[in-house]
Design a protein around this nucleic acid. Structure first.
Lengths: 208, 208
DNA sequence: TTTATACAATACTCTCCAGTATGCCAAAAG
DNA sequence: CTTTTGGCATACTGGAGAGTATTGTATAAA
């Protein structure tokens, strides 16, 4: 059983992700992916049976990378609120700055309406992300006795807003400015029921 | 100047929208669009110079339709809060139920990262939608002296959450249930600073 | 009636790309 | 050392679809 090159499949998945995140699924050929991974199409079909399988592999690569990076943000921190804010800050920054990330998720959203496996993969990913946030918020609630009544519902709404903010960043680049990033974090904390830790200026606060 | 058929271009735009909203831009051929409009590809190229132009026309068709339908929701109502809730209810319902709407907007999002004209068109559409909501919220503020401090910011956040909810509906169909729709409306009203008009159970309310 | 023109259909080209068939080579098994 | 086998490259096929060239036809103007 000869094994020369180290893990061609994962190299292909990464190369595919990079290209997909720049041009979308339809515009990238398997030749381009193979070339970007330093191989040819022949070996792509040794590891994956179709382009669709390559797409699914690139999704799994993206999900794994996201989870790893997120865990790395949390790891060094112990205070629950610090941990939540660190993850939020990192997520918002990614949403607003990283155009490749926006492209890739937008493509997944479009494709998931036609492909049940893509849809299922994203659903699992979303689920794990939600549980991460629920854990962070519940930790704060336990410590401070403050927070949203229904944690899961608040997290869902916050994540929805974050996805929407990501979309807006695509066509209103001005919201990628650093101040705008902090405002986003305030807004998201507000949705989670932590408007007190953010600035006093908050769209949720009433006039009178 | 012979003018036989009534408005072939707009018929093409609508036919294109219908197919794009089912299969996405890339999977629909001009032959299919022409056939769906009752003509052939030859006349498509009489009215549009390329497939890209057809895509842009289908976007304009979608934007116009949305604005017309939204105005029709507001027209018969006079009370500001009723008007806001009517638009919200209609928008949420569309987001959660209408899979074609989700598909089309998802495709626009993906394409707008590669095509500046598509991006610009969506930006204008978003802008007009935002101004509609700002007008509705400001009317309520004027009448009741209650509402968000920064209307525009609150509306932006609310619209972001709505886009995110639309996305979630794609892979979590259970949130399309009628009760879930009402919860969504509550949540969005909460973001706009009108949590008092919604139910007392609200993820924004604090425990203590 | 004739001519010009806008509009539409048919038939074609040309390119791109997913998928396949085959051959080569290196390492492990015997 | 030979044979087998897994990993990868080269070369090819077939189909789909964007765009074009040509022809036909109905209407408006002259």
């Amino acid at each position: 059983m000869p094994t020369r090159a180290p893990h061609v499949p994962s190299k292909l998945a990464e190369a595919a992700f990079e290209l997909f995140a720049e041009q979308g699924f339809a515009r990238v050929s398997l030749d381009a992916i193979a070339s970007n991974a330093g191989v040819t199409k022949g070996s792509v079909y040794h590891h994956y049976s179709s382009k669709r399988e390559v797409v699914l592999a690139s999704c799994r690569f993206y999900y794994r990378k996201w989870q790893q990076t997120t865990q790395r943000q949390i790891a060094p921190l112990t205070d629950p609120m610090d941990r939540l804010i660190a993850v939020l800050r990192f997520s918002v920054k990614t949403c607003l700055i990283d155009e490749r990330n926006r492209m890739f998720t937008a493509e997944i959203m479009a494709l998931s309406l036609l492909d049940k496996d893509v849809q299922c993969g994203w659903a699992q990913f979303y689920d794990s992300a939600r549980e991460t946030y629920v854990g962070l918020v519940d930790a704060i609630k336990f410590e401070t006795q403050m927070g949203p009544v229904d944690t899961r519902r608040a997290v869902d709404l916050m994540l929805a807003a974050m996805e929407g903010i990501k979309q807006r960043a695509s066509f209103e680049p001005e919201i990628s400015a650093p101040e705008a990033q902090e405002r986003c974090i305030e807004d998201l904390l507000g949705i989670l029921g932590f408007s007190h830790v953010a600035s006093a200026h908050n769209p949720c606060s009433l006039i009178s």
